[in-house]
Each structure stands twice: as C-alpha cells, then as structure tokens.
C-alpha cells in the first residue's frame, strides 16, 4: 500500500521538491510574484496543447498536427485582422479551421483506418504549408485589436488571464473524461478498441469528435499565444508538439494504470515549466537545460517502472 501511494503521488512529490529546491536556490527570483505570474503565462499555451494530446492519447492514438493547427489558426486570425475584420469574426473562423483540421484527422483515422501517426503527420505538413502560404512567410503584427490582445495579457484580480484559460479548458476536459458517457467511451476505446466496437459504442463518431476537439483546442492555444505575443509567425506552434507529449508522458506516471489524465498532464506541464524557468533563473546554460529536461523525463518514467515492478 505504501509503495502504491508513493507510486501515485511520487510525481507530485517530485514537482514539490523541484519548487522547494529552486525557492531555496534563488529565493528572490524564483518564488517572487512576478516570476510565478510569468510562469503561468508561459505554461498556458502548452497546457492547452497538452490537453489536446491527452484526449487523443486517451483513445490510444497520436495527433502530431497540434502544433501546426495552432500556427494555422493564429495566421488565419491575424490575416483576417489585417483585412479589417472584427475579433468576433476572426476568432471563430480561426477556431473552426482548427476544428475542421482535427475532424479531417479523425475521418482519416476512423473511417479510412490510416494509422494516426501517419495521418496526422501528413495533415500537419499540409497545414504548415497552408500557414506559410496564407501568411506569405511574413511575421504578422499589424492592426491587432486591443480586445484580442487582452485575451492573453494582463490580469484579473491580480491573477493572470491565462490562468483562467488553464482552469477553464483543463477543468472542462477533465470533467468530460471522468464524468460523462463520452469520456467513458474514450477510455473504453483506448482500453480495447475491438471490445468497444463489439460492445456497441459509436467509435467512428467518438474518434472523429475527439480529433476535432483536439484540433479546436490546438487552435485556441495558438490564438492565446498570438494574443500574448501580439505577433504571429507561421512556424510559431511547432515547438509546442514535443513538450506537449513530454508533459502527457510525465503525467501518465501519476496514474495507477499508466493512462493519461488531465490532472497528470497539468502536473507534467508544471514540472517541465518549473524546470526550465528555475534553471534559467539559477543560470544553467540553455544547452544543459535541454539535456537535463530529457534526462528527467526518462528518469520519471523509469522510476515508475521500478516502483511498479516492486509492487
């Protein structure tokens, strides 16, 4: 029982140790209000993309197009701004583009049986081409309405706006996965797709919806990133892909059966975020930061394996 408890909460304990460690090493810089504010802002986009990845991994698939969807949505939104459109036109159109891209992924996987790794990689490549073409390869930053920027900047009651996005999106995703019939379906499909089909679940529909939602969430993350930065490059979403999956995998170590959960993913995002932030403050060189991050991901998964075989 103790081993099991340690197993489940080991990842959480590791996160707390990390925070305590950096607080001791750099009490002024790390634990300051400004830095925590900053940290939350940096984590928000990644947390939402990682949630998209979590949903898709729950049904046992991969979506490698999330970063590209994020870029494309941001590009579409800013090009529409450039043409003089309002926020309430540009934002829904951009989100719909992400949703549609995700739905195409879902159809390729569920209807045509293309392995998700291949389908989403191919579609992602197409999306990146579209983003390149639509943006003309230029950085976009003109005629951005202030109302849009406020979606990702500033604070309400001293709490960064992006923190509310994290709470809202992850809260809803977690509720759907754990409390609704749809969420049960997703866990069943991930657990045993053949058995789920034979039990009469509408798995084609469920898989398409899951990919569509993942695409929509990726688009939302792209828009929030664009709002915070105030400018858009057509490649800006791509660096989100690998850290998002790293976060999901770290998160799986917090679940007893090794399945992805939204809470675990948030923990994974927080661990990688704190790690990079803390190391920067302490003055670790960027190349060492990357190496250490990789080592820590392997260590987390490895520790879990050892813990599990001991049970």
């Amino acid at each position: 029982m103790t081993t099991l408890t340690l197993n489940r909460f080991g990842t959480l304990v590791a996160f707390l140790l990390l925070c305590i460690g950096f607080s001791i090493a750099a009490p002024q810089a790390f634990a300051s209000q400004a830095n925590v504010f900053n940290l939350v802002q940096q984590m928000a986009t990644l947390a939402i993309v990682a949630t998209a990845a979590t949903l898709v991994m729950t049904i046992g698939e991969f979506d490698l197009s999330v970063g590209f969807s994020a870029s494309l949505a941001a590009v579409i939104c800013f090009v529409l701004f450039g043409q003089g459109h309002e926020v309430w036109v540009a934002v829904p159109v951009a989100l719909l583009a992400g949703l549609a891209a995700g739905a195409v992924n879902g159809v390729l996987v569920a209807r045509f049986g293309i392995p998700s790794f291949v389908a989403t990689l191919a579609l992602g490549t197409i999306l990146s081409g579209l983003a390149f073409g639509i943006s003309g390869g230029q950085s976009l930053f003109r005629a951005i309405p202030d109302g849009f920027k406020s979606l990702g900047r500033g604070a309400v009651f001293g709490v960064p706006v992006l923190a509310f996005w994290i709470i809202g999106v992850l809260g809803v995703a977690s509720f759907v996965l754990t409390q609704t019939e749809f969420g049960r379906h997703l866990r069943a499909i991930g657990g045993n797709a053949q058995a789920a089909r034979l039990a009469g679940l509408p798995i084609v529909r469920d898989v398409i919806i899951t990919f569509a939602v993942a695409g929509g969430l990726a688009a939302l993350a792209g828009l929030l990133l664009a709002a915070r930065l105030g400018s858009v490059q057509h490649t800006m979403g791509e660096p989100l892909l690998l850290p998002a999956y790293a976060a999901v995998f770290i998160g799986t170590t917090a679940s007893p059966t090794g399945t992805p959960t939204v809470a675990g993913t948030l923990l994974g995002v927080a661990i990688t975020g704190v790690l990079v932030n803390g190391m920067t403050i302490v003055g670790v060189e960027p190349f060492i930061q990357r190496i250490l991050t990789g080592v820590i991901i392997i260590a987390a998964v490895l520790l879990r394996r050892i813990g599990r075989s001991a049970v």
Partner: peptide, 9 residues
C-alpha cells in the same frame, strides 16, 4: 481478452 474485456479498467 481481445474482444470483450477492458483489462486495465
């Protein structure tokens, strides 16, 4: 095992 159970649930 293949068609009925969700072993890890």
């Amino acid at each position: 095992h293949r068609s009925g159970l969700f072993a890890n649930l």
